[in-house]
Design a protein around this nucleic acid. Structure first.
Length: 350
RNA sequence: UGGGGCGUGGCCAAGUGGUAAGGCAUCAGUUUUUGGUACUGACAUUCGGGGGUUCGAAUCCCUCCGCCCCAG
């Protein structure tokens, strides 16, 4: 008897081909559209209906069952509230990491299993082998960074067939199969919410923010910002301050509602080598402090060799083999052992 | 009030007779399942106002306006 797989179908090419491939491989496939967000925002129409229809269209083409799971309430609580709270605290969260941890590989998994599935599948560019998470074979599309908070148990119940393919192949295969989504542009923006600028999103959630001072590396007042929460470390644009060299954000003082910037790209405040991550999560087992690993400090950043210093209740201290620019509190540092994701945590304030 | 200097797009800033560099910012696009980064493109018929000299001026002259510095 073939296994029953529930495939999360977002209405994009990747998850469409995922469903098609699993069907070909003999699984008993059901497509599921997760409705996590449907709210329109000023100047932005939520594309959920279109996405739903595209997913449904592909399901019909493939002749598979199709369902809609409504997770809006939970998505709001677990992802959006988390994200907004982090911004308010002066950090820069990664909602997609949380979405994978809480929604796709928890809520969706549990719901699917309860509905009779043996496994779930997603269109992520990552691979799963023996309960381990590996990078996607297409290095330029690898999405393992977003998945480091998934549990081994969830991985053992998940499939990510796209992780074995290159993006160009995915598109070509989708086209060959005549899938309705073959030429649909890749999605961008906040997971499930869509292509909305984070500033517009926060404005819609929180309203106008108190303006404050922009201070340069010499402590000089050089301008006014329209809300410290909108700015993130390393950011260059959006300061509306000109004259000479570009300004990069080096830090924020939420208590003083200040944004600190520098024109000096060598400024020590812009470069970091040693830091701590908290809320650590290990997929299979804790890292070996004596072993050489690599870390990725932001999505698509190069892997940097690291030395682990100490694993405490507070988190993990580590030193990078080289300085990285604009390490940002709230973002995730993911630890790799070659192409295997060991785990990671959240970069703390420093 | 004397003496000197300056006024070029939102901000810096080249250009001192030959028909407006460059950078920042901004906007658009590309890259990207977060934010950010990076990359590409767009952006002054006009040089504080007025007048004059000249084939031709942001560049020379006159004048008015504004700002800065030194004297006091």
């Amino acid at each position: 008897m073939s296994k029953i797989v529930y495939v999360g179908m977002s209405g994009g090419v990747d998850s469409s081909l995922t469903a098609a491939l699993l069907k070909q491989q003999g699984y008993e496939v059901t497509g599921v559209y997760m409705k996590n967000w449907s709210q329109d925002l000023p100047g932005f129409t939520c594309p959920w209906k279109e996405d739903y229809q595209d997913a449904k269209r592909v399901a019909v083409q493939l002749g598979i069952d199709f369902k809609l799971y409504d997770f809006e309430t939970e998505y709001r609580q677990k992802v959006v509230d988390y994200m907004v709270g982090e911004y308010q605290a002066g950090r820069t969260p990664n909602p997609d990491v949380m979405c994978n941890q809480e929604v796709k590989f928890k809520l969706f998994l549990e719901t699917a299993l309860a509905d009779g599935a043996d496994m779930i599948a997603t269109g992520h560019y990552a691979r799963i082998k023996d309960g381990q998470l590996l990078t996607g074979l297409d290095g330029s599309k690898d999405q393992s960074y977003f998945l480091y908070r998934v549990t081994e148990d969830a991985l053992r119940h998940s499939l990510m067939p796209i992780g074995e393919l290159k993006k160009s192949v995915v598109r070509a295969e989708a086209k060959k199969l005549g899938l309705a989504t073959a030429d649909k542009p890749d999605s961008q923006g906040i997971c499930f919410v869509g292509k909305v600028g984070i500033k517009d999103f926060l404005l819609a959630e929180l309203g106008e923010q108190p303006h404050g001072d922009i201070i340069d590396q010499h402590g000089k007042l050089i301008g006014e910002h329209d809300g410290a929460i909108f700015y993130t470390i390393g950011q260059r644009h959006g300061l509306q301050v000109g004259g000479g060299l570009p300004f990069y954000v080096t830090g924020k003082d939420m208590a003083k509602n200040q944004v600190q910037v520098t024109t000096d790209l060598q400024d020590t405040k812009l470069w970091h080598q040693q830091f701590t991550i908290t809320d650590v999560h290990w997929i299979n087992c804790q890292p070996d402090l004596t072993k050489q690993y690599q870390a990725r400090v932001r999505y698509r950043a190069a892997l940097v060799p690291i030395t682990l210093l100490a694993l405490t209740k507070q988190g993990l201290q580590m030193t990078l083999g080289e300085e990285v620019r604009a390490l940002t509190p709230g973002q995730s540092a993911v630890i790799y052992d070659g192409d295997r994701v060991v785990g990671g945590g959240i970069v703390t304030n420093h």
